[in-house]
Design a protein around this nucleic acid. Structure first.
Lengths: 192, 192
DNA sequence: GACTGACCATTTTAATCAACTAGTCATTTC
DNA sequence: GAAATGACTAGTTGATTAAAATGGTCAGTC
C-alpha cells in the first residue's frame, strides 16, 4: 500500500481531538484532515467513540513511556515519585489533548470525554500503585496499601498544582516537592 | 414589634435556598414563605445576593460552632483533626443547604453558589489553619505551613470521602482515619 | 475489493417569543 | 408618618420550533 490510511486517520483524529475536543471534532473534519473519504474511517473504526478510544490508548501509551523514561531504579522512591508526577504534569500541560479533555469535562460534561479522562487517570494510578508496591518490596518505604496511597498522592498533587493556584500564588516545583516530603515521607509527628 | 420580619425572611430564605438552591429560589417565593410582602425584603437586604450571603454566613457560623464543640483541647491533634473533619463531613451530608449548593455548582455553575461554597470552604480552611498553628505551638506536631497543611488535609479528606467511592467501595471512617495517620502523621519513610 | 461522498435519520444549534423574576415605588396600612 | 406592600417595569430566562449540522450507511466508482 502506498499510504497507511489507518495511520493517517489516527493522526488526524489525534490532532483534531486535541485541538477541538471530542464534541467539536466531526468525522468529516477528521476525514478531510486525513485526506480520506468519510466512509473510509468506518472501515477501520466502528464509530466515533472507538476512534476516540484509540487516541486515548495512544496517549496512555505515550504517558507510560514518558514515565518509564523519567524513573531511575537507582534513585530513591521519593525522587522517583517526584520525577514521575512532574513528568505526568509536564505531559498534561504540554499535551493539548489532555488539557482540552479536562476542559471539556468541566465545562460541558461530555460523557465520552469523561470516560477518556477516567481511563487516563486510572492508567496513572495503576502505574503508580505498581511502583509503590516495588518500593515497599525494596523496603524503600513502609508497607501501605499501594492503590490508596497512589490515589492520595495523585489527588494531592493535582490539588496543589491546579487547585491551590485558584486562590493563592502558584507553588514552585521545589515547594511542592518539599510539601510531599513533609506530609508523605516524614509525617508531622514529632520525633519522640 | 409583634413579629420580627427580618428573622422571618432569613428563615424563609434559608429553607428555600436549601430546598431549591440559589437560582430556583425566587424573591416572591421567599416573601410568601415568610408571610411578608416582596418589597419588605428589600428594606432589610439590598438584593438577592446579599440575602444569600447572610444565609451563607449563618451556615459558616453554625459550622464553626459545631467544630468548636467537636474539638477537645485535651485530646491529641490527630484525634481532634479527625473529629473536626468528620463533623464537617456530617454537617455537609446532613445539611441540605450545602448539598444543594454543591450540586448547583457542579450541575449549573451558578456564580453566586460558587462564591458561597468558596466562602464556606475558606472558613473551614482558616479554622483548620488556626488549629494547626496551635498544635505546632504546643509542639504536638512538627513545624509546617498551617495554610498549606490545612489545604492538603482538606483536599485529601474530600478526595477519600467523595472521589474514592466513585470508582471503589467506600472507605469506612476507621480506614480514612488510618490513612490519615499513615500519610500525615507517621509518614512513609522507613525508620532508620 | 478498497474507497468514496451523496444521502438519511437524528441530534444540535439558532431564532423567536412568551413567561418569569429582580428590583422599584406609588399607594395603603396601622 | 413610618413601615409594609404588591402592581409594575426592564431585563432575563425558558419553551418552541425551524434550520443546520453530524454520525453513520451504502450504492456506486476506481
Amino acid at each position: 500500500m502506498a499510504v497507511d490510511r489507518r495511520k493517517q486517520i489516527v493522526e488526524a483524529a489525534g490532532k483534531s481531538f486535541a485541538l477541538f475536543g471530542y464534541k467539536a471534532t466531526t468525522m468529516e473534519q477528521v476525514a478531510k484532515l486525513a485526506n480520506v473519504g468519510k466512509g473510509t474511517i468506518y472501515t477501520f473504526f466502528t464509530n466515533k467513540e472507538e476512534l476516540f478510544d484509540v487516541i486515548v490508548d495512544d496517549v496512555i501509551y505515550q504517558l507510560r513511556d514518558l514515565a518509564k523514561t523519567s524513573i531511575d531504579p537507582d534513585q530513591s522512591f521519593m525522587n522517583n515519585l517526584h520525577r514521575f508526577l512532574f513528568s505526568a504534569l509536564e505531559f498534561r500541560r504540554e499535551h493539548e489533548f489532555v488539557i482540552r479533555l479536562t476542559h471539556e469535562v468541566k465545562e460541558m460534561g461530555t460523557a465520552a470525554a469523561k470516560e477518556g479522562m477516567l481511563k487516563i487517570e486510572n492508567a496513572i494510578l495503576n502505574f503508580m500503585a505498581v511502583k509503590i508496591q516495588d518500593a515497599i518490596d525494596r523496603e524503600d518505604i513502609k508497607p501501605c496499601n499501594p492503590e490508596r496511597t497512589a490515589f492520595a498522592m495523585f489527588k494531592m498533587y493535582i490539588a496543589f498544582v491546579f487547585d491551590w493556584e485558584l486562590t493563592h500564588e502558584p507553588l514552585s516545583k521545589q515547594e511542592i516537592l518539599e510539601l510531599f516530603r513533609q506530609y508523605f515521607v516524614n509525617g508531622l509527628a514529632v520525633e519522640s
